[in-house]
Simulated scan of single mutants.
Amino acid sequence: MLAAGCATLPSSGPTGHEIQKSITDPKEAGQLQIVEIADAASLPVATARRALPFSENEPSPTDMVGPGDVLDITIYEAGIALFGGGSRIPGDGTGFDPSAKVEKLPPNRVDDGGYIQLPYTGRLRVAGQTVSEIARRIRTGYSGLSQNPQVLVSIREDITNSVIVGGEVGKPGRLILSTNRESLSDAIALAGGYRGDAKDLEVRVTRKDVNGEFRLSDVLAGSERDLRVEPGDRILLLRAPRSFSVMGAPGRVEQLAFSGSAISLAEAIATAGGANPNLGDPKAIFIFRATAAENGQPVNTVYHINMMRTGSYFLAQRFVMRDKDVLYFGNAQANQPSKLIQIISQLFSPIVAITSGVSALR
């Protein structure tokens, strides 16, 4: 009766033997693979970091002009002036007024085609040029109309030399690059810093239709992920905490967040509370991991570790958990009869209590 009853008892999951048997089932062949964590050679290889999706270019000049920028143009003239209204000095038939005339043109926005409009000379293409190059071209255009004009050009509103920073930062918006050598961490700091825990944040960079995703903790660690930003980049900080799920003998189904930028299997087991001493089997601890091969095909791997072996505790410290791993504590086969006895006890305890009560009344 006990043997028959144990097979039908409710359970939080299969035993370690049942898991291993199901993996070797012909129906599962080719879909699952089991790896026994018995020594250092059986530990999963650390995931190779993907190469940076962006090529490293030379920093562009900080005074480069492009569409959307607003320019301030000032023209200095002496003698007969095109803008300043220069005239002959009264009583002097040979000289001209030597004082300089200053004409500040209205703010000039660079249109979508990269042109600005100037009086007397018409449209001038300035996109992709620095302010000094633009000043020389304007002076050349006015040289036949004015006596030795001097031109100063400055950027009033800088759109070209900027990046957009958004998401979980203190001051989202447009950020002007002062040197064009600012790194990703510099841009985040200039935008008011990040909000939340660095280990839970992801940085997404969009550059000319190419996207890159990095963990903020890696960026702040000073790795190659702390790349140099370029004008036109869009930087977005998103909350994307990493976690693992706990199932099986603990009697609970729970999703636990990583306590740091990376955690080991030993830390994961401790965070989950370990195997239940009444229900769990420390010899049957499994990690279910779904990954993808280079060809894009799914790869489902089950890692098994026997924590009754002393060496397994050292291996568990070197086993690195990944995001969305499932940590499963197998049920102990020996606890099934005790479950049946507990259920039978619960069924008959009311009868025993009533019988005892009747005897007391007599």
Rank of each mutant, 00 (worst) to 15 (best):
M1E: 15
A3G: 10
C6L: 03
T8Q: 14
T8G: 11
L9V: 15
P10M: 08
G13C: 09
G13F: 06
G13N: 11
T24L: 12
E28D: 04
A29R: 12
I34Q: 11
V35H: 05
D39I: 03
A41L: 08
S42H: 04
V45F: 03
R50F: 04
A51H: 11
L52A: 13
P53S: 15
F54P: 12
S55E: 15
E56Y: 06
P61R: 08
P61Q: 04
V70D: 01
D72R: 14
T74G: 10
I75M: 08
E77C: 09
A78T: 11
L82A: 12
F83M: 13
R88K: 10
I89S: 14
D97I: 09
A100Q: 08
K104S: 15
N108I: 07
R109E: 07
R109K: 15
D112S: 13
Y115L: 09
Y115G: 04
P119H: 11
T121L: 13
V126P: 12
G128Y: 08
Q129I: 01
V131K: 13
I138D: 12
T140C: 10
S146P: 02
P149M: 15
Q150Y: 11
V151M: 14
I155E: 12
D158P: 03
I159L: 11
I159P: 01
I164M: 10
V169E: 07
G170K: 03
K171E: 09
K171P: 06
R174V: 04
S178E: 05
R181V: 01
A191R: 00
A191H: 00
G192Y: 02
G192P: 04
R195P: 01
K199W: 00
T206I: 06
R207G: 13
F214D: 04
L216N: 11
D218W: 01
A221F: 00
A221W: 00
G222H: 03
E224N: 07
L227F: 09
D233K: 04
D233Q: 02
I235Y: 01
R242V: 03
V246S: 05
A249Q: 13
P250D: 09
V253E: 08
Q255H: 03
Q255L: 09
Q255N: 15
F258R: 10
A262K: 14
A266M: 11
A266Q: 13
A268D: 02
I269P: 12
A270V: 07
G274S: 07
L279G: 08
A284W: 00
I287G: 08
R289E: 03
A292I: 05
A293H: 12
E294G: 15
G296M: 07
N300G: 05
M307N: 04
G311Y: 02
S312P: 00
L315F: 01
A316L: 05
A316S: 15
R318S: 05
M321W: 00
Y328D: 10
G330L: 02
A332F: 04
A334P: 00
Q336N: 04
Q336C: 02
P337F: 09
K339I: 00
K339V: 00
I341Q: 06
F348P: 01
V352W: 12
G357N: 02
S359Q: 07
A360C: 00
L361F: 05
